[in-house]
């Protein structure tokens, strides 16, 4: 219990307090201390990835062993993981074509022709999701929703050159451009609300950090108090 509770709490308290004040001590010894702890952090992060790989292997192995629904996907995961690893080792981690021969290494093929298009597709899907959500949500049901709708249309039209051109063509001389109106909506109306949320969040972060440093909140150690 002592090793599971008191020691982590003591470490959290000492390191927390030291590094709150370290930010105000510019001396090179203080910076050196930060460097040492940063190095530790980087090393721990590196080793933690082994933890992740271990979990991945275990979970998918159990799926295959028990033949859970969709266990075939676990086989695909294994094949992709081992295949990419082998290609990476064979290519020395390089994806760029050889400077002399122009030959693309195996890892380059995996990276450029599998990972890049797959990831690009996933992100591109977001545009379609946003479109369907916008179509569903922007309805003039009340005064509030009308304001939301108008702001959305201004930003959508002002964001693209064709919209800007159409606005200039329709509006008389002297009326600000729609991109400027959009900027005003974002930087004045939207930002005021955003700042209020951010101030609340920042105070929440201060309070939460303080609770962890002082050992008031121990939920992360498991088992509440």
């Amino acid at each position: 219990m002592f090793l599971q509770r008191q020691v982590p709490l003591a470490i959290c308290f000492v390191v927390g307090v030291v590094f709150v004040f370290q930010d105000f001590v510019p001396h090179h010894d203080s910076e050196q201390l930060l460097t040492v702890f940063t190095d530790w952090g980087i090393i721990i992060t590196g080793f933690a990835s082994l933890l992740g790989v271990g979990s991945l292997i275990q979970v998918h192995w159990l799926h295959i062993k028990r033949q859970n629904a969709g266990w075939g996907y676990s086989v695909v995961t294994y094949v992709a993981m081992v295949g990419t690893l082998a290609a990476g080792i064979a290519s020395g981690g390089k994806a760029a074509p050889d400077a002399q021969t122009g030959v693309m290494p195996a890892f380059g093929w995996v990276y450029n022709y599998t990972m890049v298009p797959l990831q690009g597709t996933m992100f591109a899907i977001l545009a379609f999701f946003v479109a369907s959500v916008a179509f569903r949500s922007f309805r003039a049901r009340s005064v509030d929703s009308v304001l939301l709708l108008v702001a959305a249309v201004i930003l959508l039209v002002g964001n693209v050159p064709l919209g800007e051109a159409a606005w200039r063509w329709v509006m008389p001389e002297g009326v600000p451009g729609i991109a400027d109106v959009g900027d005003w909506v974002m930087n004045t109306l939207n930002l005021a609300v955003r700042r209020a949320i951010l101030i609340g969040v920042a105070l929440g972060i201060v309070a939460t950090s303080l609770k962890f440093i002082l050992g008031i909140e121990r939920g992360y150690l498991g088992g509440g108090d």
């Binding site: 916008a134 569903r136 003039a140 249309v153 964001n159 064709l162």
Partner: peptide, 24 residues
């Protein structure tokens, strides 16, 4: 890519307007 952006976003504006007309 800006013209694709233009067409897609203006299509979305059209859809929003259409949605509201049908809604009313």
């Amino acid at each position: 890519g800006m013209l694709s952006m233009s067409f897609a976003q203006l299509a979305l504006v059209g859809l929003i307007v259409l949605g509201n007309v049908l809604h009313w």
